[in-house]
Amino acid sequence: MSIVFFILAALTITGTAAAMALRNAVHCILALTLGFVGLAALYLQLGAQFVGFTQIMVYIGAVAILAVFAIMMTRSAGPHPQPAFSRTWRTGTLIAVIVFAVLAYAISHTTLAPATLPQPEVTVNQIGDTLMHQYALPLEILGLLLTAALIGAVIVAMPAKQEAPQ
């Protein structure tokens, strides 16, 4: 593991932890984008170039912007009279810590034998070929899901029709 990996890991963890801990919702989203950039860079570091750029494009270009729009439309970034965390935040954090402890214990007590292969060279053509042959059906289903989500999101978020005045 190179030093670059640890820097990127630190960036990711800082960004995401700040996203979950800061008070102001917009600051949270901005910290989150930092975490996503770190994660995308980790993907690049692991040799998955296409996934890394897709991560930036989808999460920063779409999800973060969408979240920002939602925050603006629900006015949840204004001055906060009430606390940012729910009443049960101690229980929630405890559960998360326990989950992490269990996962870390399991991971560190498993003997993993990673194949020490050279960095795999994945070209976009290979990904395209695999996507169009082996994974053609999942791709179609994903397209259907995205279309359904698009229409569904619009219908759910659309203001209810005003009743005509009698």
Partner: peptide
Amino acid sequence: DLNSGLLYFFAVGSMVELSVFMAGW
């Protein structure tokens, strides 16, 4: 010469939107 150069271009281009929002907000 990135193998997925165009994707890189559009991915980085989408960060501009975020900076615009940061400035305005």
